[in-house]
């Protein structure tokens, strides 16, 4: 705990960032979880680079596994960030997931942009959210706001 010397303003901002990203991940995961016909197949098949890899992910046997893993990862990251538990692990998962989303449809000049509501050049919202998770990873806040706060106290008490 003593390692993290944030000002109150910094702590609030970092907690807000973690909660918002978690909120977004969880909502995306829940919407897909409750929509049985949802599949990432179209997104993967239309990948603009690394087509063999994404094509393999979208292939018959892999497709349903990928869908389950995708939903699972979204929910796990969402829950972790919201309740503040194992956020480092969840950050790694979240960044991996966003990196895959980004690589399937990178905002590189000359590549088709696909469906999106804005204008992007190299950096797009997937990449920005990835960077946001990076911040969450290296500036942890679960010790101050989250289940880890209780567990840490618990641990301290037990071991003392």
């Amino acid at each position: 705990m003593e390692d993290h010397k944030y000002s109150t303003g910094q702590l609030y901002a970092l907690v807000a960032l973690r909660l918002f990203v978690g909120w977004h991940f969880l909502y995306e995961g829940i919407i897909k979880l409750y929509s049985p016909s949802w599949t990432a197949k179209g997104y993967l098949l239309s990948a603009s680079i690394l087509k063999p890899f994404f094509g393999w992910l979208a292939s018959g046997s892999m497709s349903s596994v990928v869908d389950v893993l995708n939903i699972g990862a979204l929910v796990v990251v969402g829950v972790s960030f919201l309740i503040g538990y194992k956020t480092k692990w969840a950050s790694a998962i979240g960044m991996g997931l966003l990196l895959l989303y980004y690589l399937a449809h990178p905002a590189f000049p000359g590549l088709p942009q696909g469906p999106s509501e804005g204008s992007y050049w190299i950096v797009n919202k997937n990449l920005i959210e990835l960077a946001a998770i990076w911040v969450i990873m290296v500036f942890p806040t679960a010790w101050a706001f989250g289940v880890e706060n209780l567990l840490a106290k618990n641990k301290t008490e037990v071991t003392n």
Partner: peptide
């Protein structure tokens, strides 16, 4: 420690 849980439930 637990304030995140109601947020989780709401979302």
């Amino acid at each position: 420690g637990l304030a995140g849980i109601p947020v989780l439930g709401t979302v």
